[in-house]
Computed example of a mutant assay.
Amino acid sequence: MATPVTLLDPQCCTPLAHDIISRDEAESLAVTLRALADPARLRLISLVAAHDGAEACVCDLTEPVGLSQPTVSHHLRVLVDAGILTREQRGRWAYYRLVPERLDGIASLLATPVG
């Protein structure tokens, strides 16, 4: 939730038109953006999103990104830890699914309010 900011000297500062994100929100967003700030991870998110139901098996993700399976698994773990993907083990394979609410939350924190 946005936090109101009180200006120390309103005569010398331009008043804020909108609330800013809280310190906790900024720290959480920074963790998420670090997870997203990797081309391989962005491609993995895109690949998962492109699959039916926005869910993909790890076996479908390794070859398209051109990385080894352990490297892909590491990137997927970072995305799961950031709450961007969920992981479900089905027998031998792990399946990854996008968390749309998390992506929506990131977008809303980055959106600049108008008006």
Rank of each mutant, 00 (worst) to 15 (best):
M1Q: 10
M1W: 09
P4G: 09
P4N: 13
P4M: 10
T6C: 03
L7Q: 13
L8M: 05
D9R: 14
P10W: 07
P10Q: 10
C12A: 07
C12D: 03
C13I: 06
C13W: 11
T14V: 11
A17Q: 14
H18G: 03
H18W: 13
D19P: 03
D19N: 11
D19E: 12
I20P: 00
R23W: 03
D24R: 15
E25W: 02
A26T: 04
S28P: 00
S28D: 12
A30M: 03
A30H: 06
A30C: 01
V31Q: 07
V31E: 06
L33Q: 11
L33F: 12
L33R: 05
A35H: 03
A35C: 07
L36D: 00
P39L: 14
P39I: 04
A40M: 09
R41E: 03
L44A: 04
I45Q: 00
I45K: 01
I45G: 02
I45A: 07
L47K: 05
L47N: 04
A49R: 09
A50Y: 05
A50K: 12
A50S: 15
H51K: 11
G53P: 00
G53M: 06
E55K: 08
E55A: 08
E55Q: 11
A56F: 03
C57K: 13
C59D: 13
C59K: 11
T62L: 09
T62S: 11
E63S: 12
V65K: 06
V65H: 06
G66A: 10
G66Y: 12
L67Y: 15
S68W: 05
Q69K: 15
Q69L: 15
S73N: 11
S73K: 10
S73R: 14
S73A: 15
H74R: 15
H75M: 04
L76S: 01
L76V: 05
V80Q: 01
A82E: 01
G83M: 09
G83T: 11
R87C: 13
R87Y: 02
E88M: 02
Q89A: 14
R90H: 13
R90L: 13
R90A: 10
G91A: 04
G91W: 06
R92W: 01
Y96D: 01
L98P: 01
L98N: 02
V99Q: 13
P100E: 14
E101D: 14
R102M: 15
L103C: 04
L103D: 00
D104L: 12
G105C: 07
G105H: 08
G105N: 11
A107S: 09
A107I: 08
A107L: 14
A107Q: 06
S108L: 14
L110Y: 05
T112W: 13
G115C: 01
